[in-house]
Amino acid sequence: MALGSEVIVKLTAPGSLVGRVRLPGGGGPERFSVELRDVATGYQVRDSFFRTDGRFAFPQVPAGKFVVAVEAPEGAGKAEVALATGERGQVEVALAGRVTVRGRVLDLDTGEPVPGMRVKFGAEGQEAFISSADHVDEREVSDAEGRFEVADVPVGHATVIVTAGSFGATSDHETIWTRAVIANDRVVELAPLQVPRRRLRPDDEAGELGMTMRRDDPTEGAEARRPTVAFVQPGGPAARAGLRVGDAIVAIDGHDVTGDHVHRFASLTRVPVGTELRLELARGASVTLIAARR
């Protein structure tokens, strides 16, 4: 654009969204938070509400297709709503209750119990994280048999984090983020949570694999995600092994790294120089590469 050119900027009127949150037995929660997210555009806004009889409002919202995720002490819920430019939308979100979840934390390679790992749940679509301000219930930390118990978990699709037992602590095992579906039962027994052992120690020299991975597509469902090669360094370990741009990796050393297990990719590829990795590809091939010096 040349200096001094005339520019016309057209502003579009924002829309708005009002809604109501309902408890399982009727009525609205006293205290709750609402997150509005458009996965396609990355637009996201969050607000908290108190003593509104479950009513909430977002006065300025752009056009888009939104997931409305609600968290309250009594439960969690979500709904979807699409808004056209300038439209005033309405939505109702029914909360599912909370339950107690039990399970075990096991080593990915050996299947042995992993003690000292804390497990936390959050509603899917909202980040689950552990901070120094969190109260630690000892039942949430895996015992000698790897068992844990977490109370007040929202029913439905959940995000799960498994990490060292206390904030800032280190562990021989990696932190993982995965997903689970929590049934509407009083007590839910979850399938074992498998955590990889750290392959790279603090005094190890980190190896280079010679490839860069594609960023996840936010519009792609989590179950369809696969680590995909975006760049192969000429002459590097990946190139010598025969990897190509566009290759989707489905397993590393026999461990699934797709869908809910995509988090394993980073853990299994953080390795010392000289480590040999066997990669299984979606195109049916299997390749072996050796981590080189950076």
Rank of each mutant, 00 (worst) to 15 (best):
117 M>A: 13
119 V>M: 09
65 K>H: 12
87 E>A: 13
90 Q>W: 10
116 G>Q: 12
112 E>S: 13
117 M>P: 11
82 A>K: 13
99 V>Y: 08
122 G>D: 06
64 G>H: 04
117 M>W: 12
114 V>P: 04
107 D>F: 05
66 F>S: 08
81 V>G: 14
85 T>K: 14
122 G>C: 05
67 V>P: 00
121 F>N: 07
119 V>K: 14
120 K>F: 07
110 T>S: 15
82 A>C: 08
115 P>D: 11
106 L>I: 06
83 L>C: 09
97 G>I: 09
83 L>P: 08
100 T>G: 08
70 V>C: 06
66 F>P: 04
88 R>Y: 01
78 K>P: 00
83 L>A: 03
95 L>Y: 05
74 E>W: 09
73 P>N: 08
69 A>Y: 00
118 R>M: 13
105 V>S: 05
87 E>M: 03
72 A>Y: 12
119 V>E: 11
61 V>S: 02
84 A>C: 08
107 D>M: 06
119 V>F: 14
76 A>L: 06
66 F>I: 01
116 G>F: 13
93 V>P: 05
103 G>S: 08
79 A>P: 03
122 G>L: 00
88 R>I: 01
72 A>V: 07
112 E>Y: 10
123 A>M: 11
62 P>W: 00
109 D>M: 00
71 E>A: 10
117 M>Q: 15
118 R>S: 13
63 A>E: 14
72 A>L: 12
90 Q>T: 11
108 L>H: 08
102 R>D: 03
88 R>W: 01
82 A>Q: 12
119 V>G: 11
67 V>S: 14
84 A>W: 01
61 V>L: 10
78 K>C: 04
114 V>N: 06
60 Q>F: 15
67 V>I: 08
71 E>P: 01
91 V>E: 02
115 P>K: 09
93 V>D: 04
69 A>T: 06
116 G>V: 12
61 V>M: 08
104 R>N: 04
88 R>H: 07
85 T>L: 13
91 V>H: 01
104 R>G: 03
124 E>S: 14
82 A>L: 07
93 V>R: 07
118 R>T: 13
70 V>Y: 00
108 L>W: 05
107 D>K: 08
68 V>N: 05
110 T>R: 02
93 V>E: 02
107 D>C: 02
85 T>V: 15
98 R>E: 00
80 E>K: 14
122 G>F: 04
78 K>D: 14
119 V>D: 11
91 V>A: 04
68 V>Q: 05
77 G>E: 06
98 R>T: 01
64 G>S: 10
124 E>W: 12
120 K>W: 07
65 K>E: 13
70 V>M: 04
66 F>M: 03
71 E>N: 08
81 V>S: 14
86 G>P: 00
82 A>D: 10
106 L>R: 15
118 R>L: 15
105 V>A: 03
115 P>Q: 11
63 A>F: 07
76 A>W: 04
124 E>G: 09
81 V>K: 09
100 T>D: 07
67 V>F: 09
99 V>P: 12
122 G>T: 02
93 V>K: 04
110 T>V: 05
91 V>T: 06
62 P>G: 01
110 T>I: 03
123 A>Q: 06
61 V>N: 07
84 A>L: 15
74 E>V: 09
100 T>S: 12
68 V>W: 08
87 E>I: 00
116 G>P: 13
100 T>I: 11
89 G>E: 06
85 T>N: 13
111 G>V: 11
99 V>M: 12
89 G>Y: 01
79 A>C: 07
60 Q>K: 15
64 G>K: 01
